[in-house]
Amino acid sequence: MNIFRLTGDLSHLAAIIILLLKIWKTRSCAGISGKSQLLFALVFTTRYLDLFTSFISLYNTSMKLIYVACSYATVYLIYMKFKATYDGNHDTFRVEFLVVPVGGLSFLVNHDFSPLEILWTFSIYLESVAILPQLFMISKTGEAETITTHYLFFLGLYRALYLINWIWRYYFEGFFDLIAVVAGVVQTILYCDFFYLYVTKVLKGKKLSLPA
């Protein structure tokens, strides 16, 4: 465990908590893509099946359980408790265009052709693109609430910190996982445009709105 990995995990946790609190406090999930949140719940479910087969550390197990629980809670708030505030009309990204190719790819390119390994690979690939429905929704409405941009910032920061973590581990532990690294690079790139807007607008106190 190095400092980049730890702050990456904490940044990921911060993103998840920010989103939950935003929905809970405002009693509204306006501007949030339920489809992205469903995809993240699917990502955590398929990745953390090893909770049943192997124990790594108390930290590892508790963080996995927290991520899974929070992602299901978020989906519950969006599709059940605050369903009336869910902006389904703007959440129109076709998720089958992500899930089907990612499913196919995880069968073709994986470390080992076994059920758990294929599901783990599926979750890695799916996570890299799961934010697309949310970004699509923002591009469609042309704006995002500031709290939503904080959520996206911490979510992108998490993956960027993981990239530094992998460089660190490559040099100091000889550790390298091509699947995770390529997916992580793709995922981080998807946030670059958003990072630019976040720094140039949101951090200067302006609302994130896109030119018409």
């Binding site: 990995r5 995990d9 990921h12 790594i56 470390h111 783990w120 390298f176 996982d177």
Partner: peptide
């Protein structure tokens, strides 16, 4: 081989 799975990561 040098490929190691990142199973200890989240």
């Amino acid at each position: 081989h040098h490929l190691v799975n990142t199973k200890d990561e989240l």
